[in-house]
């Protein structure tokens, strides 16, 4: 929008005239021409906003009336713990006592195994996705692509990869490769490649071209230019984005289980559809704990990496 006005922003100060008044005249002209555009945009924006509110029926009273029902649901999945029995072990008949923590978390072994599987899925998917995104990011960067067609191809590929929600890819893959974590890992990896490919390529586009020119000037080919001109500049950013994606993927891998693609989501789906009792809450708490822990650790690592310049 602003690009078009550049050509007209220069002006001439006739000799003998006061530069301030000449400037003020041109400034007023420029402001007038922008005013029309700005008002049009604001009106358009408001009109679209009103239409969206009406279509989505985003009315405050609906939200207000629905609010209590949220708590109602949580009421049904709350555990019934009793203070005096809280830490009681198994009774003589080998069964847990109702009202104890052990009773609530009697399936803890299964949960832990699935949580572990969830983390492994996230790690594998992130690694695969990052590798693919790395490869895509260089041709997908406008300033680095060798040809226009490789640029378009890389960009469209990344778009398709991130355009399809991972749960949809997972659903298709479960059909193809069967129930289990493999489908989930591939689904998340594909989505990761698309999302990170876009972010990585933007980092590449902001990289300084001077080192690239330096490598070119000594006779390096395109791969040498990328490896030594670009990668050292962008790597800290790549690592930071990859870790951020890992956090997102932990959440994603606890969801894809809903369609049978492995991880703790499988168990959450199971408890919701078969029991709908305090076991739902038990699994939910574990998922929240897992995601929060991973987020905290990953954030620490990221802030440490950002300041470091000697990363290769």
């Amino acid at each position: 929008m602003a690009q078009s006005s550049i050509a007209t922003t220069g002006f001439v100060i006739p000799p003998g005239q006061d530069p301030v008044s000449v400037f003020e005249k041109h400034r007023a002209e420029l402001l007038r021409s922008r005013l029309v555009m700005n008002i049009t945009l604001i009106v358009l924006f408001l009109a679209l906003l009103i239409v969206s509110v009406i279509i989505s029926r985003f009315y405050p009273e609906r939200l207000w009336n629905g609010l209590p029902r949220i708590f109602e649901y949580f009421g049904t999945v709350m555990p019934s713990l009793e203070a005096d029995k809280l830490f009681e072990g198994r009774a003589e008949n080998g069964k847990a006592v109702p009202g104890s923590l052990l009773f609530w978390y009697s399936d803890i072994g299964k949960y832990v195994r699935l949580l572990f599987e969830t983390i492994l899925m996230a790690i594998t998917a992130t690694m695969l996705g990052v590798a693919l995104a790395f490869v895509l990011s260089f041709p997908a960067a406008r300033n680095l692509a060798l040809t226009r067609w490789s640029n378009i191809l890389a960009r469209r590929t990344a778009e398709v990869f991130r355009g399809v929600p991972e749960i949809v890819i997972a659903l298709v893959l479960v059909f193809a490769v069967g129930i289990g974590p493999l489908a989930g890992v591939i689904a998340i990896a594909i989505h990761t490649a698309g999302a990170l490919g876009k972010l990585f390529s933007e980092v590449n586009e902001n990289a300084s071209m001077r080192p690239v020119e330096g490598v070119r000037s000594v006779g390096g080919n395109w791969f040498a230019e990328m490896r030594f001109g670009v990668v050292p500049q962008v790597l800290p950013n790549f690592v930071s984005y990859a870790l951020l994606r890992f956090e997102i993927n932990v959440r994603a891998s606890s969801i894809v289980g809903f369609v049978g693609a492995g991880g703790i989501g499988q168990e959450l789906n199971h408890t919701i559809s078969f029991y709908n009792d305090d076991r739902v809450m038990a699994v939910l708490i574990l998922i929240v704990l897992l995601v929060t822990t991973i987020d905290l650790i990953s954030e620490r690592v990221r802030t440490r990496l950002i300041g470091r310049e000697n990363l290769i």
Binding site: I6, T9, G10, F11, V12, I13, P19, V20, V22, F23, E24, H26, R27, L30
Partner: peptide
Amino acid sequence: GPEERALAIRALDRLGMAHTALQRAET
């Protein structure tokens, strides 16, 4: 304010740059 703009334009004019005042610096 207009006084500040005038100050800026006079400074630019001293350096022969007043005519570029509305352009982007990167040009």
